[in-house]
Simulated scan of single mutants.
Amino acid sequence: MYHPNRAVPIAFAALVAFSCCFAAVLGEDKLNVDVYYETLCPDSMYFITKQLTPAFNGGLKDHLNVNLVPFGKASWTEEGNNVHSSCQHGPMECHGNKIHACAIYEIENTVKPEDQQQRMIDFVGCAMTSFDPEAALKQCAQTQGFNDEFVKNVENCSNSKQGDDLFMKHGQKTKGFQSPLEFVPSIVINGEKSSEAFRNFTGVVCSQIPGGNQVPICKQ
């Protein structure tokens, strides 16, 4: 027998269940994007500022899980408690890589999980417009809404053993992907390196996400 008073709760429960399942499917459909870059590399600067950041902020952020790996073609040696680093574009780049590693770490440990991706793109997208990583830290913190404590923590981290440890962590991830790294930046989408993504990131992403032809940025 039909019971009107029971129909609404049952229908509501069905709707909630459908919504949860639909959200789970959307989450599973996100593309995992690893970006292996270095802070003073012109090609890295081009990709992050002209491809990744505009695509992320232009309508693709809900379709992406971005992992930024600031290391590139760097290397290191350990001597006791000391870590000696070497980078393709010199010591300033090594320090820049540590600044980015520390900034990413700080964001991951102080920002709500749902906001972390956006805040990492905010900071790194801004910082990669400059060839002076230290100046970019302060300038981008100010323009992107990070407080003084963020700057202080990143500075302390990048000049300490913690910075060395994070530098090596990103180095190990990079070498686990490819050693030596053939090209910087290397863009890896769902485990597959994509050379095309370097100059057409939006197009590559749109071709891989379900229903990509219905996403406004993909129609441009």
Rank of each mutant, 00 (worst) to 15 (best):
F123P: 01
F123R: 03
F123S: 01
V124A: 00
V124G: 01
G125S: 07
G125H: 06
G125W: 06
C126H: 04
C126K: 01
C126P: 07
A127C: 09
M128R: 03
M128K: 09
T129Q: 14
T129A: 12
T129E: 14
S130K: 11
F131Q: 13
F131C: 00
D132Q: 13
P133M: 09
P133L: 08
P133E: 06
E134G: 00
E134K: 15
A135V: 12
A135G: 13
A136Q: 10
A136S: 15
A136G: 11
A136F: 10
L137G: 02
K138T: 12
K138I: 07
K138Y: 03
K138L: 10
Q139N: 13
Q139P: 00
A141P: 03
A141S: 14
Q142C: 00
Q142W: 03
T143F: 05
Q144F: 02
Q144I: 04
G145M: 09
G145C: 09
G145K: 10
F146S: 01
F146M: 01
N147Y: 04
N147M: 05
N147P: 04
D148R: 12
D148Q: 14
E149L: 12
E149F: 07
E149T: 15
E149Y: 10
F150I: 01
F150P: 01
F150L: 02
V151N: 04
V151A: 09
V151R: 06
N153I: 03
N153W: 02
N153T: 13
V154C: 07
V154E: 05
V154K: 02
E155K: 14
E155S: 15
E155V: 14
N156H: 12
N156C: 02
C157N: 08
C157K: 04
S158H: 09
S158V: 07
N159E: 15
N159K: 15
N159G: 14
N159I: 03
N159M: 13
N159D: 14
S160C: 11
K161L: 11
Q162G: 10
Q162S: 07
G163E: 07
G163R: 07
G163K: 06
D164F: 10
D165H: 07
D165P: 02
D165F: 05
L166T: 09
F167S: 01
F167H: 03
F167K: 04
M168S: 05
M168P: 04
K169A: 13
K169F: 12
H170T: 09
G171F: 03
G171V: 05
Q172N: 14
K173V: 12
T174L: 04
T174I: 06
K175F: 11
K175W: 09
G176W: 06
G176H: 06
G176F: 07
F177N: 05
Q178C: 05
Q178P: 02
Q178I: 06
S179E: 14
S179Q: 13
S179W: 12
P180N: 10
P180L: 10
P180M: 06
L181W: 05
E182W: 00
E182N: 14
F183Y: 15
F183T: 14
F183W: 15
F183P: 00
V184I: 13
V184W: 06
V184Q: 05
S186K: 12
S186N: 08
S186A: 15
I187Q: 01
I187R: 03
V188Y: 06
V188W: 07
I189K: 08
I189E: 08
I189T: 09
I189V: 13
I189Y: 09
N190A: 07
G191K: 11
G191S: 12
G191M: 10
G191Y: 10
E192G: 00
E192V: 14
K193C: 00
K193T: 11
